[in-house]
Design a protein around this nucleic acid. Structure first.
Lengths: 342, 342
DNA sequence: GTTAGCACTCATTAAGAGAGAGTGCTAACA
DNA sequence: TGTTAGCACTCTCTCTTAATGAGTGCTAAC
């Protein structure tokens, strides 16, 4: 059996109506709402075919039909009119992005909030991957007696600071000298590489200021460990999920919010992480908690290099056209901001 | 009518049972479960008295009784056995607090997590109040051409960094000189005071490096504005609320989580913010969303100075004894960590 | 003052009836 | 041969009704 033009029209009608109402839709209602020029009986026959093709399904005998995952997939791939974001939305994004924000973490959390507000979905933003970033520079600053602030600047623009014990009191010159050695050896290396080979070398060169070096190295190791594991995902608009009728069940809400607290699981959602825009529908998700959800994600770049991803999460019954348009625009905008910024 | 020993015993029984089961309890059940040496009819009479005293109430005619806010209050003030935390819990807290953590933000978020895990309630932690903290020192560090990193160290130990544009490229010496002026003028002033008087003075003294000064001052003003408004509250274990039978209703969950996103409202919960430990029960809360909740809060100190507060939030039907013991121990432990740390 | 007994109340649960939306199938029609 | 009208049937949802059970307040006896 093949898809013909009429089947496509009917499938589109079903998907659109279900996205709008969240109610299974029957042949009679389609005939009434959409002007397809055929009777409900004809539509009924076509719907039986669509069900055989696996594109729609019945929650139970004698109810209307709802799109299956495959149905949504067909809709997204073949039926959807490409949508652009509204002028109003574009304006909001542009107004927000001209704000003078320098810190990348702020840009990220900003993006996350904006995305969830515009889509009424839950937003996911994966910041610049620390593991992938290269070491830029470090500085020591005096803090308390016996302690210094270690500031680490990475080449992707992030700045971190940590306080470390040094035991003795070193002069500003001595600190600068130590930092100089680190900087000379490490600049431009990815933090992964730093970890593996250089720390030992540096250790040898600076054997005099034992305590400072020890603790700096400890801290670096810690940061590096962090970096490999923890690329925090920024979530926004998690409450929007509660407005979706598919989460009227408290058990589901609980399971969902539980997963929201697990960074690792969230990362998997943004995972299929190829260049450009991805749509993952329902069961295509690897996590069972998200079988009923879809994710629209896209990567963003700095200086031509892909460094992170943003996405929105919602029920499979989401407005794909609108969500895709917004995510797409958002990544472009983000790429632009971050590129200009450096 | 007066409270006598038997009434007290019965009230205690009602509170304890209701805390454990979340079900209204009737006279017969009390007679069966608790060995008070009198029949259910007698208990029934006493319960009528307790209701007249406003200490217990009936959800509806012919159901068991539940404690009223006043009942919990009486229980907390007069009936509760002072409880200490279990050895196991003490050990967990002590083990966690010996971890070498230097940054205060980390200590705070750590505390928050620990607190919610130990109590199975939602934890609230208010970090050192920025507005109250005094300026310690600032540093400029080179970043990109035309930009520097501004590192601000406050005397309460927090470290912040911000990137600012300077337009021209200044040498390390020049930067240091500018920072020197700021440091000399501002050290020891509360950030509130800095805002009001000193910025102008500094501006005059440093009129040469216009761009750098302008942007630093802008940034400082921004930080100061932030400081007055935003003392972020750390929340932990918000999901624990979902396990409480009083939040089986999705509407309530929505309202609750909405408030969780509003920092200002949360602050009000920790507000009655006198020295030491406070118990706020049900309607004593000012926010209507929390009429059914109680808050146990306590302040913590650094060097004898009260700088923040921690608390737990749960349904009025919570285990007050346990919660109070844990919050109390936690603030002591926190005070100790933070004092040692400096 | 305490207790047993009893009529009464109210929430909760289960079962049954009816309505409504929708289906699949058959037969008639263009 | 594709389209349509008609009809019996299915399943959910809602409303009603009845039964159950935990609990109360009151009265009278101990």
């Amino acid at each position: 059996m093949q898809m013909d033009e009429r089947k496509r029209k009917i499938l589109r009608a079903i998907v659109q109506d279900y996205i709008a109402t969240a109610e299974p839709i029957g042949s009679r209602t389609i005939a009434r709402k959409f002007d397809l020029g055929v009777s409900s009986a004809t539509i009924r026959n076509e719907m039986a075919d669509l069900e055989d093709l696996g594109l729609i399904e019945q929650p139970h005998t004698s109810s209307g039909r709802v799109p299956s995952d495959a149905g949504y997939r067909y809709f997204v791939d073949c039926l959807m009119d490409p949508q652009t974001i509204s002028d109003e939305q574009r304006e909001i994004i542009e107004r927000e992005s001209t704000k003078r924000i320098h810190e990348i973490q702020e840009v990220i959390s900003h993006t996350s909030r904006l995305l969830s507000e515009l889509t009424n979905l839950t937003s996911l933003v994966l910041g610049p991957q620390k593991g992938k970033s290269t070491f830029g520079k470090m500085h020591f600053l005096p803090y308390q007696p016996g302690q210094v602030i270690l500031v680490i600047v990475k080449e992707n623009g992030t700045v971190e600071n940590h306080i470390i014990d040094i035991g003795e009191n070193l002069t500003a010159e001595e600190l600068q000298q130590v930092a100089g050695v680190f900087n000379q050896k490490m600049r431009g290396y990815s933090l992964g590489q730093v970890k593996r080979s250089l720390l030992h070398e540096i250790y040898n060169e600076l054997s005099r200021q034992r305590r400072l070096i020890d603790n700096t190295l400890d801290m670096l190791r810690e940061i590096l460990d962090d970096n490999e594991q923890e690329d925090r995902i920024y979530l926004g608009g998690t409450l929007n999920m509660l407005n979706q009728p598919e989460f009227r069940d408290l058990g589901k809400v609980k399971a969902l919010f539980k997963v929201f607290e697990e960074n690792e699981s969230l990362k998997k959602l943004l995972q299929p992480y190829q260049e450009g825009l991805n749509v993952t529908i329902g069961g295509e998700n690897t996590l069972k908690e998200f079988k009923g959800c879809s994710v629209i994600s896209a990567t963003y770049k700095v200086n031509g290099l892909t460094i992170g991803a943003v996405g929105v999460l919602g029920p499979t019954r989401m407005d794909y056209g609108k969500a895709i348009a917004i995510v797409d625009f958002m990544t472009r905008s983000l790429t632009e901001i971050l590129t200009k910024r450096r």
